[in-house]
Structures are given as structure tokens and as C-alpha cells.
Computed example of a mutant assay.
Amino acid sequence: MSQTTYNISTETALHLVANQRRRSVLTQLIESERNDVALDELAEHLSPENPPPGPGETMSSERLLLDLYHNHLPKLEEAGLVEYDDRTETVRYHPNDHVEKLHQFVTTELE
């Protein structure tokens, strides 16, 4: 795993925290005391907290894992906030003050 630090633009940071599921992932990663969090732990944390994707729909654990793996984690990884290790199925968070400040504002003031 690399140790690259990314400068994240305000537009990218806004895009990342605009989605409730990504905010929940970021919350868990920011608050975690461990360096790496298992993908299924993230999914477990999200399932009771996130509303269904649409009216009358439910999201199974498997679908949630797929959504994280194919949709949300790649966006966070592209921005340099996380690294996903396929071998161990863990997510490593790389702190970013800019994103964390915006995340805190959105979660405390706007939700």
C-alpha cells in the first residue's frame, strides 16, 4: 500500500460527502481506532443506519457489499482517502483535514 497524500479539491470533497452512504463510511473510518477496517464491518455498520435505496426497496447485505465495493470505495480511493486491499478485504483510511472538516460540518449542521 502506498503512502501518497492527495490534495483534494473542494468540488471533489463536496461530491464525496454529498452521498449519505459515503458519509457513513467516512464516519466509521474517521472514528475507528484501527488502521484497517474490514469491508463486512463497514457493511454491518451501514445496514441499520442507511435508509433503503428507494421507497419500498430493501438492500440485502450482499447488495450493500457490492455497492460499497463497486461504487463508493472506488470514489473514495480515487480521491486518495482510502485504499482497499483485495487480499485481506480491508479498507485503510488516509486522513484528510479538508474532507474531515467538510464531513463534520455536513453531519453536524446539515443532517
Rank of each mutant, 00 (worst) to 15 (best):
E57W: 08
K75N: 11
Q3K: 10
E100K: 07
T58S: 14
R34S: 13
L14W: 11
N35R: 12
L81I: 04
H98T: 14
R87D: 13
M1L: 08
T12N: 09
D36I: 09
T88R: 09
S24M: 11
V91L: 04
L42T: 04
L68H: 06
H15N: 12
Q28M: 12
H98W: 04
S47E: 12
V91H: 01
Q28L: 15
N7K: 10
T58F: 07
H98L: 12
M1I: 08
E62N: 13
L16G: 05
T27N: 09
L76D: 06
V91S: 06
N19S: 11
L66I: 12
L14F: 13
L81K: 01
E109F: 02
H94P: 06
P53C: 01
L81V: 03
L110E: 06
Q104T: 13
V17Q: 00
E11H: 06
L46V: 05
T4K: 10
A13T: 05
T4N: 09
L39G: 10
S61P: 15
E100H: 09
S24A: 10
D36L: 12
S24V: 14
G56C: 02
P95C: 03
E44V: 10
M59F: 04
L26K: 05
E49P: 01
P48S: 00
S9W: 04
A79G: 05
N50M: 14
V25S: 05
Q20M: 12
D40P: 15
Y93K: 02
V99Q: 01
S9Y: 01
G54C: 07
D85Y: 01
A13P: 06
A43N: 03
D85Q: 07
E41P: 07
G54D: 14
L16E: 00
E83C: 08
G56H: 00
H94R: 09
A79E: 05
K75V: 09
Y84A: 08
H15T: 14
S9P: 04
E109L: 02
P74R: 04
D86G: 11
T108A: 08
Q20G: 15
Q20W: 06
N96Y: 00
S61M: 15
H15P: 02
L16D: 02
L102H: 03
H103T: 02
H98C: 08
E44L: 13
A38G: 10
A79M: 06
S60M: 05
